[in-house]
């Protein structure tokens, strides 16, 4: 079955700039002697600031879609545009520069560097690591209520605190787009809600786009638009304007 969905998502804040676009994107993996399709002919347009949730069962391709949109994976076919740039045409280093300067990432695990302090871990998210980056990191941590922990090492923090530090690191470069892959999956409900509130506060204040993959309907329910994935296809886009094709 080839579901061919063209989805246009416009956030409620009213921005009209094209942030992310996927055209006929497919992603295939070599699996043993066969080929596994993670994405089939995905078409998606995300305009303006807002919050886009990507939902679907395990193996539906939602994380793959996020990674392709974020330039972490090269699609096997089709075209991905982010912030006006065709990711396929970018060199490896240009793609890295885009990720480092304009994107923020929050993953299921915080992946903090164990020998760096909290402030240093956050400073690592800066496009340029210098003394001012560390000062900005400390200021950001204070704003996020983590000011007491700037000099602590990651293993001294709770899981929720570590994930908030990871979120602070993602916001360090003032990203235009924040990609979050199951950001609350390893957290309890309260910590998860706290983390999402933090991300929402940022994208509202900065007019950024938050694209989050989650199993958690509570997380998804707050989205301006939800892209539901099924078997590598965009099954539905709700509640924003969508046109099937």
């Amino acid at each position: 079955m080839a579901v061919h969905t063209t989805a246009a998502v416009t956030g409620p804040v009213g921005g009209s700039g094209l942030l992310l676009e996927a055209r006929h994107v497919s992603l295939r993996y070599r699996e043993g002697s066969g080929v596994s399709h993670a994405l089939h002919d995905v078409n998606l347009t995300l305009c303006g600031p807002g919050y886009v949730g990507i939902a679907g069962p395990s193996g539906s391709g939602k994380s793959s879609l996020l990674y392709v949109l974020a330039g972490l994976k090269r699609p096997s076919g089709g075209q991905v545009r982010a912030l006006g740039l065709d990711l396929q045409r970018l060199t490896g280093s240009a793609l890295c520069a885009l990720r480092r300067q304009r994107f923020g990432f929050v993953f299921q695990q915080p992946f903090l560097i164990q020998f760096l302090t909290v402030a240093e871990n956050v400073a690592v998210g800066s496009p340029r690591i210098d003394r001012s980056a560390r000062q900005r990191a400390e200021a950001l941590l204070v704003r996020l209520g983590l000011g007491r922990y700037t000099g602590r090492l990651p293993h001294e923090l709770s899981g929720g605190q570590r994930q908030r530090v990871a979120a602070a690191r993602a916001l360090m470069n003032n990203p235009a787009i924040v990609f979050a892959d199951e950001p609350t999956a390893a957290l309890d409900h309260a910590a998860g809600a706290e983390l999402m509130a933090l991300l929402h506060e940022y994208r509202t204040a900065r007019g950024a786009l938050l694209a989050a993959v989650s199993h958690d309907e509570a997380v998804i329910s707050g989205a301006d638009a939800v892209v539901r994935m099924w078997d590598g296809h965009v099954r539905t886009v709700e509640p924003a304007q969508a046109s099937g094709g």
Partner: peptide
């Protein structure tokens, strides 16, 4: 993990 997250964040392989 450390190298992987840095790579994901946009630190080049070089």
């Amino acid at each position: 993990e450390e190298y992987g997250i840095l790579s994901a964040m946009g630190y080049t392989h070089g």
